[in-house]
Amino acid sequence: MSDALLSVRGLEAGYGGSQVLFGVDLDVGCGEVVSLLGRNGMGKTTTVLSIMGLLPTRAGEIRFAGRAMTCQAPFRIAQAGIGLVPEGRQVFPTLTVEENLIATASNRGGRAAPWTLERVYGFFPRLAERRRNYGDEISGGEQQMLAIGRALMTNPKLLLLDEATEGLAPLTRQEIWDRLAALKRDGLSILIIDKTIEALLVLADRHVILEKGRSVWSGSSRALADDPVTRDRYLSV
């Protein structure tokens, strides 16, 4: 798919002496939601860090919005339009909820109807109630909403979500899934990692499975739902 928004080819990366990724291929088209699946330690987070430029790429190519992004600084990749919601959420504890949203806000793509403070508060009303609290004074679910809101405030073309609902209460999870579905209806492209395959089968258009640092399967939700062998082989614990 040459007109993909994000295209990763033959990506290899690792930490120090140990290589983790040995060849990851994936595409995310405009307005498409793609999930990155695989058991723990198969390289999902490493893939996210490499796409974001937070981990140096050893081989392969990353293209975003038609530009080569391999070996670019993280801030340039973010400025090109990738909004990161990292594993562990990583909201700034030294800033209030509102400051977390404002501090890195931008609209570099010149979006006509950009994400603003009011729009994020409308999207996540609980953040509005907590606007004066510091980042470490709110619940895990609120932190996840804040991390998503913070990424949306950079008005990204692609949202990169690592562990979208990990460690959250069931009700909060459902709220996050609802909000992600709303973002999809809005036309936002999303690359998402999560352990809840049932929810991902509903939300995502396509899925890419990683096994030992390689992408070994990719296909639609229908194909994955109809393929218990693949699910069993790569995803069951």
Partner: peptide, 10 residues
């Protein structure tokens, strides 16, 4: 690291 991942030239 998180600041630069949100588009700020650190």
């Amino acid at each position: 690291a998180m600041i630069s991942a949100l588009g700020v030239d650190i």
